[in-house]
Design a protein around this nucleic acid. Structure first.
Lengths: 344, 344
DNA sequence: CACACTTCGGAAAGCGCTCTCCGTTCCCCG
DNA sequence: CGGGGAACGGAGAGCGCTTTCCGAAGTGTG
């Protein structure tokens, strides 16, 4: 195929009439090298069309210029169709966008890694320790996932998006989910809804659990010691199904908090199919303020989560930790805001 | 930080009482090694907690187990907010989902690479040739982008999603965009629309150009030698703006073909704000059949593009090419289908 | 003018792995 | 029982790069 061997540093050095070591020093801008040699070497680089072999470089420096975006596979593997759905969910895209905003400027590559089995976790940590990747950003994990602990133990730079299941000294960025759910509760009550239900995400994920807890707490404050609740898995379809179930069990429902916009969209569809008007008969509040919220009819009242900023912050945190290995784990919690639109 | 050096193959070999070469052979399942040694080595692997250093392995094998998802940066760099938007667009997510469906099983990692400048292109090709990545999937590029040619010239395994600007012997997967646009035209005409406009994507991207060409051709067949056209950039906002402009120039419009669902969503919003009912006053046909189409009100009539399948096919094509370096470039063109919902 | 001190380039030792050689061992057949 | 061949393990040469260690040269001071 390509008969020609790629030029190596050796070739550049020969072309420039210096040693490999000197060529390397010039290219990496290390130590004071005689300015004359400097330009000679760069000319040789251009003449030969040299491109450094990152693999070889990383092998010795133990720095790869890549960070891993870790996605829990258990979360996506339940059933195959869900795999595609997870990536198509605005959640994923917004996170990637936020990360890239920071990483692109730092010249760092993002690699996707799905992790489900214990073996994959071990390998992930191994790769990280080997310098295959410099660090990891881990997307919201089930609370029971041992990964955060493993990462900490291995002393590997990592940032979670979404708090760890149990306290672990690790960097993370999160939203004040409980506060956000409270905002939704307050709004529904203030609007005059009397029978208020919730469609939650999977309780096994901290973000899911926190939204449930926050909502229940706020509702209790308003005198509702108990709220009807059905769980979904953050997909629109699950929102439709959950709404059907809720409606069957509590036909008199007139207020609904849904733990993300996609499910809220589904719920609205079901409600409308059941002859309920939104917001006149049932007021609906979503969560995320994803693009789906605006597209809905009526536009969704929702709790805004600045995911892009959160992801960017995660990247920044990771970058800082990469610079300074002694950095203590820190966490950044963002405040949600209620965006009132047409649905409640 | 970690006082303990990571176990190397050497350590495993010593623990197992064999040579490094034998340990390597067992771990990689190469050649017949005495079955007894087999288990001895694996025990040693478990005992030491050995994880192969992929970097070192790749350096010699020139296979990295990673493929690059290349995104044109010019496409996203125009203005910063658009960057996030590109990733949040269902388009990106659906492609990633489709790719992962195939790559995950093959145990191959996906890395994101944004490419804009000439230097980045050179480096991309260099990385590929060095074996930093085994191949590339390139997301729809401006027609003028030299990347496809460079990839071909370098003899590097690559698959485009969306045809190249000009004929280049390279693998690609595409949709019969012209056919799809024709479907939309036929439908609008059959519905009785008399003044039909189009909101297109950027004409500089083949997919954008093909949809324009296909629509014009079909409209001409129906006796409309000329159609009002405004271009957007595939974002919802640009769809809103384009619809405003179209409405201002051709207030009597009663049919509208929009080159993707996101822009169609924006157009519907604008139309409604202008007091036009959809579909009664203006019939709207979108393109993609993304999740946005279902969320819209009314649900969008749209031209379905099986992006996940196309991406999966691209991955498969790439994998096949990786297996068989002599494989001739091939292309797979998918047929679109009109999905009739409420908007037209 | 000699001496200590700084600056700079080169030789060479790896980073951890794969894989080609090559020498042994073992088996089968004549 | 001896010879030919297959099967198998080990030594060692790299993959392309960075970086430590040195010696050689250049600089300034007593």
């Amino acid at each position: 195929m390509d008969a020609t061997r790629l030029p190596t540093l050796e070739d550049v050095a020969r072309a420039a009439g210096v040693s490999r070591a000197t060529a390397s020093r010039v290219i990496n801008g290390v130590r004071n090298v005689d300015p004359k040699l400097h330009s000679v070497v760069w000319d040789a680089v251009n003449a030969t069309g040299y491109v450094p072999n990152r693999l070889a470089r990383s092998l010795v420096t133990r720095r790869s210029g890549t960070i891993l975006l870790v996605v829990s596979d258990s979360e996506t593997h339940d059933d195959d169709p869900f795999l595609g759905r997870f990536f198509a969910d605005p959640y994923f895209g917004r996170v990637v966008g936020g990360l890239m905003r920071v990483l692109r400027e730092a010249g760092i590559q993002l690699a996707l890694q799905m992790v489900g089995t214990a073996g994959q976790r071990t390998r992930l940590v191994g790769d990280l320790r080997h310098g295959q990747a410099d660090g990891a950003v881990v997307l919201s994990l089930p609370a029971a996932d041992p990964l955060p602990g493993m990462l900490t133990e291995a002393g590997v730079p990592a940032v979670l998006i979404g708090r760890p299941g149990e306290p672990v000294p690790i960097n993370y960025v999160d939203l004040a989910n409980e506060t956000g759910a409270g905002l939704a509760a307050d709004h529904l009550v203030a609007r005059g809804a009397r029978t208020i239900g919730m469609i939650s995400g999977p309780p096994a994920v901290p973000a899911g659990a926190d939204r449930i807890a926050g909502f229940r707490r706020a509702m209790a404050r308003h005198g509702h010691g108990w709220v009807p609740l059905v769980s979904g898995n953050f997909t629109r379809e699950s929102g439709e199904a959950a709404a059907r179930e809720l409606l069957a069990r509590h036909p008199g429902i007139d207020g609904l908090f849904v733990a993300n916009d996609l499910m809220a969209l589904g719920a609205v569809i079901t409600l409308r199919a059941a002859g309920r008007r939104v917001p006149e008969d049932v007021a609906v509040v979503g969560f995320d303020d994803s693009s789906a919220a605006l597209a809905a009819d009526p536009p969704l009242t929702t709790v805004r989560q600045p995911l892009e900023d959160m992801a960017a912050e995660a990247a920044q945190l990771l970058l800082a930790r990469l610079e300074d290995a002694t950095m203590r784990p820190s966490s950044v919690i963002y405040e949600p805001a209620l965006i009132v639109r047409g649905s409640a």
